[in-house]
Simulated scan of single mutants.
Amino acid sequence: MGEDVLILINTKLLPHVHSMFSLWLMIIGTIQIIYVASTTLGQQNSRKRIAYSSVSHMEIIII
């Protein structure tokens, strides 16, 4: 929820800058999804596995 608010504030205050960097933000978000998903597979503790998968899903929402 916090990330959504930050993106909303960013798009309202600086729409031109946000449009300039939106492609890079999507690329970084995609890399983070792949990285977090790969680290999720290596976790032995189920709580950590759920936490890492939740981070990955939030990144999908951000993109």
Rank of each mutant, 00 (worst) to 15 (best):
M1C: 14
M1S: 15
M1Y: 13
G2W: 11
G2N: 12
E3A: 07
D4H: 02
D4S: 03
V5T: 14
L6V: 11
L6E: 07
L6W: 05
I7S: 01
I7M: 03
L8S: 11
I9G: 05
I9Y: 02
I9L: 06
I9M: 03
I9R: 06
N10T: 10
T11L: 00
T11R: 06
T11C: 01
H16F: 06
V17K: 10
V17N: 08
H18N: 01
H18P: 01
S19E: 15
S19M: 15
M20Y: 04
M20D: 04
F21Y: 07
F21A: 00
F21Q: 00
F21P: 03
F21M: 02
F21C: 03
S22K: 13
S22A: 12
S22C: 10
L23P: 07
L23W: 06
L23T: 13
L25Q: 05
L25V: 03
M26K: 08
M26N: 09
I27V: 15
I28A: 14
I28E: 06
G29S: 15
G29M: 15
G29I: 14
T30K: 01
I31V: 13
I31F: 08
I31C: 08
I31H: 02
Q32G: 12
Q32M: 14
I33K: 06
I33Y: 05
I33M: 14
I33L: 13
I34E: 04
I34N: 00
I34C: 09
Y35D: 06
V36H: 02
V36F: 04
V36L: 00
V36Q: 01
V36K: 02
A37S: 08
A37W: 02
A37R: 00
S38H: 01
S38F: 04
T40R: 05
T40N: 08
T40K: 04
L41T: 10
L41V: 11
G42I: 08
Q43K: 10
Q43L: 06
Q43H: 02
Q43I: 08
Q44S: 05
N45T: 09
N45D: 15
S46Y: 12
S46F: 11
R47S: 07
K48Y: 11
K48I: 10
K48V: 11
R49L: 09
R49D: 00
R49P: 02
I50H: 04
I50D: 04
Y52G: 10
Y52N: 14
Y52W: 10
S53D: 01
S53T: 12
S54D: 09
V55E: 06
V55Q: 05
V55A: 07
S56P: 00
H57W: 09
H57D: 10
M58G: 04
M58S: 08
I60V: 15
I61D: 08
I61K: 03
I61S: 10
I61N: 06
I62Y: 04
I62N: 10
I63N: 07
I63M: 05
